[in-house]
Write a protein that binds this DNA or RNA. Structure first.
Length: 287
DNA sequence: TCGTGTCAAGGCCCT
DNA sequence: AGGGCCTTGACACGA
């Protein structure tokens, strides 16, 4: 049972260096290199701080932010030895302390889009995540199905064939607001991709059966790896802010989902970040 | 120094 | 066909 912190400590996040592409395009390459490299070095140091927090509290899991290397397409970050050196330190720290590192590209990754350019761009995003994952020893890259229109499952299955095999082996598919765990499992069975179960998304988009009935399949599809799950509590009720995350995982939800913490490594998706993780850890210490 | 509006990318839903 | 919304923090800019 690992309990995962997501991307940052409360109150502080990654540096980007500049706001938006328009601002970036006004700069010379030298200026972009300088600002972006500075931001990347800051981000890597900050990520190490997060890992130290994880080490000291024994949760054993952390999601690395996708903006670790900001605006990666616009500069040759791999040419900067200072960055590669720092990444090595991160990798070693995670490995030495048995911290499972996760990555989770954002909503713009739509492998099954009806638009080919979007598919192409999604593959670029995934390839970037793969590069970072190799440098950091990340074995899990979680994505959503993306589109839920028409033959979306067939498109997803077809497009996974475009992925590098080693990248594909790292990918997990998570149920989301629009595609339930049952459909995710169907895609996983046909592609060999591992599923990731989001307990809260299952409330928003339930499948034909309660999620408990899919646990066995999820365990089987996870092969020899510990399966991953996401937990979050809604900020509002079903009419209002039900999709957004609250500060902490509610005690009610911890009681409801506690038995799955034995089977899964669980990422804590909550605004309270490390405080929310701490609360979950304390909950399990007490029982 | 503080507060506020802006920021690459997609999908979906409503009009 | 087009606009708002999803979600959230960093940053730039103006007061």
């Amino acid at each position: 049972m690992k309990i995962g912190l997501v991307c940052m400590l409360k109150g502080r996040g990654m540096k980007k260096g500049f706001t938006g592409i328009k601002a970036l395009e006004k700069l010379s390459q030298v200026e972009i290199d300088k600002k972006a490299c500075e931001a990347a070095l800051y981000n890597i140091d900050y990520t190490l701080e997060c890992l130290k927090w994880v080490k000291n509290h024994g949760q054993g899991m952390f999601r690395v932010s996708s903006s670790l290397i900001p605006y990666n397409e616009f500069w040759n970050w791999k040419n900067f030895d200072s960055i590669l050196e720092k990444l090595k330190i991160l990798k070693k720290f995670a490995k030495d302390n048995n911290i499972r590192l996760i990555m989770h590209p954002d909503q713009f990754t739509v492998l099954n889009s009806e638009n080919n350019e979007v598919v192409h761009n999604s593959i670029k995003i995934l390839n970037h995540h793969y590069e970072i994952s190799e440098l950091l020893g990340v074995e899990d890259i979680i994505i959503h199905v993306g589109s839920s229109k028409g033959d979306y499952k067939e498109r997803f299955i077809k497009n996974t064939k475009l992925l590098n095999k080693k990248l594909k082996a790292k990918i997990l598919l998570e149920n989301c607001h629009s595609v339930g765990i049952e459909d995710v499992i169907e895609i996983c069975e046909k592609t060999g991709i591992r599923p990731c179960l989001d307990f809260h998304h299952d409330r928003i988009k339930p499948s034909s059966q309660s999620f408990e009935n899919y646990i066995e399949k999820i365990l089987n599809l996870s092969k020899n790896k510990v399966p991953l799950a996401h937990i979050s509590s809604p900020a509002g009720d079903e009419k209002n802010s039900y999709k957004s995350h609250s500060e902490y995982i509610s005690t009610e939800d911890l009681i409801k989902f506690r038995k799955y913490f034995d089977l899964f490594d669980v990422e804590i998706e909550a605004k309270g970040k490390e405080k929310a993780v701490k609360k979950v850890v304390d909950f399990f210490k007490k029982i």
